[in-house]
Amino acid sequence: MTDLQTRSGGPQGRAALRVVRRRRGLTASDVGVLVLTAFVCVAIAFPFVWMVLTSFFPTDELFDPTRLFPRPERATLANYALLLSGSNFATYMVNSAIVSVGSMLASVVISSLSGYAFSRYRFRGRQVVMVAILAVQLFPFVILITPMYAFFSELGLLNTRLGLVIAYVAISLPFASYLMLGFFETVPRSLDEAARVDGCGVIGTLFRVVLPVAWPGIATVGINTFILAWEEYLFAKVLNTDESMKTVQVGLANFFGEFTTRWDLVMAASVLASLPTIILFAVAQRRLVSGLAVGGVKE
């Protein structure tokens, strides 16, 4: 946990680090770790880097069998221009963003309630409900889509963003509930009792006292749900057929279907479709990871 202090310790911490490094130097195993890490990072990043790189080149440059890497002077934004002008990609992105953020918020709130119930209460049926929640994961989605469509149709939720939010929250709930349960377990119960003594109700205790301490849980559940909602394809395709309500994944699938191995265009679309999650992660990363560290301080 000294790491945590140095991380958040600002300039002093950084100065201290510099001292430490100078004093210790690098051992052989340190160098080994650095080399291994570098190798792993290159290996993992490569498919992604190649995707981004090739999205900026015309197809003939990429398909040239005599050339491994495209020439920098042939770089162009034409793929992106074609993509954004020729389709409703911008609309899809907005829809996906609304649906994903909505699902993220709702999932955090609802899974907090259930996770808290599992963590703090011993009640009749607890085991059964916990197993049942896990069990719904066991059904392959594809086969359930027909009755779900009929149901959403009854409720007037077709071609709405709300319909997708409901579906995604439900999909995220089993895992999110278990995660929140795990994170609440790391929060000392004494905190709850103190809050009760101060006159907080159950909801007050949960949202004002316990949740703020369980940041890593919120970040993990939130990001997980966002990614799930951003990537989901089956429900989005079946429930929302109106052009103004389609999501990125549906647009992407159509695009892939149309351009299959026009790799330049496909890669440009891929980059655009990955961007929001990358941005979200870049923003939330500090919180997520430092939150994880805080979660570790418990007890």
């Binding site: 498919p47 992604f48 190649w50 995707m51 990614i227 951003w230 990537e231 394809y233 994944q249 992407l252 699938a253 892939f256 496909v266 890669m267 891929s270 479709a273 990955s274 999650t277 990358i278 992660f281």
Partner: peptide, 11 residues
């Protein structure tokens, strides 16, 4: 993790 599965497959 930030790359949708469809995109990962394409890449």
């Amino acid at each position: 993790w930030m790359v949708p599965p469809t995109v990962a497959v394409a890449a």
